[in-house]
């Protein structure tokens, strides 16, 4: 316990280096083009390869190509919510101002990617399983994640005093993070219609490398794209808050009066 205050303080100071919105704007402007262009390059390469050049699956046929969209979307749906939870922690413990703005901006992007994951999963399930939707543990836990995103989006904007909204949404983000391990392990803990993960940390991927490569490319590309969109929205949000503070500053009001 004696080490904890120094660790806490150190973590805090590390994040406070980037808590400064001015420093974030500078950093964001520098990395934005790199993020955007590499994201476009990797996504186009991965999806193009997946759609036109990768082989069809021996039993699923060409419908396996939906995987190159569905799997990155599924990983980012969980990853985005994990990012929301980290923002919530930074907000509650260190009162990190940028974390609150980031939580506002990550929510809608994460909800969109979760909706994409659910929709592409449905489009994949109909021809393969023979049904658009089943209430199995994996599908249901991802649907719960989608509603957690919607709740977060609504809660963080629900209060007149934004600080109260940030606090409530941070608590929701942290509590909802319980759903993430449930999503991850649902296919191992219970019988599900959804198949287990093909790519694991422990074993060889049960996927031909001719499908793994385009999947890896599109996964990197779509993740970078997610980051690029969040960084762009966050930069815009910082600028907008600066605009608001300029417009409401007493000096300006005095000057214009």
């Amino acid at each position: 316990m004696s080490a904890s205050p120094t660790l806490v303080a150190r973590t805090g100071s590390f994040f406070h280096r980037y808590a400064n919105p001015g420093r974030f704007l500078k950093l964001g402007a520098r990395i934005q083009p790199w993020l955007t262009w590499t994201a476009l390059l990797f996504t186009l390469a991965g999806l193009g390869w997946g759609l036109f050049y990768s082989p069809a699956d021996w039993q699923q046929g060409d419908s396996v190509r939906i995987m190159y969209v569905h799997v990155p979307a599924a990983i980012l749906a969980s990853g985005g919510y994990a990012a929301l939870a980290v923002c919530g922690l930074l907000s509650l413990v260190w009162r990190h101002p940028l974390a609150d703005l980031a939580a506002v901006e990550i929510g809608p992007v994460g909800a969109c990617i979760t909706a994409l994951c659910l929709a592409t999963g449905s489009l994949w399930g109909k021809p393969m399983w023979g049904t658009w939707w089943v209430w199995d543990a994996r599908l249901t836990s991802v649907l719960v994640l989608f509603f957690l995103y919607l709740g977060h989006i609504a809660l963080i904007r629900a209060f007149d005093d934004p600080q109260r909204g940030y606090r409530a949404a941070a608590i929701l983000a942290l509590a909802g993070a319980v759903d993430l391990p449930i999503i991850k392990f649902s296919v191992q803990w219970w019988n599900t219609l959804h198949q287990p993960d093909s790519i694991t940390l422990t074993g060889a991927p049960t996927m031909s490398s001719s499908m793994l490569w385009p999947l890896a490319l599109s996964m990197v590309g779509i993740s970078l794209g997610f980051a690029a969109i969040v960084v762009a929205r966050l930069r815009a949000a910082v600028m907008e808050s600066r605009i608001r503070s300029i417009l409401s500053s007493p000096r300006r009001r005095g000057g214009s009066a």
Partner: peptide, 28 residues
């Protein structure tokens, strides 16, 4: 009243599946 197919987590091209079958390593 309804039969759903549950596919597993293996993904391989048709040719690879054929080769595995031919070599006797796998009978689906």
């Amino acid at each position: 009243s309804e039969v759903l197919a549950k596919h597993d987590e293996t993904y391989m091209p048709k040719e690879v599946a054929e080769a595995l079958k031919k070599s006797g390593k796998w009978d689906p």
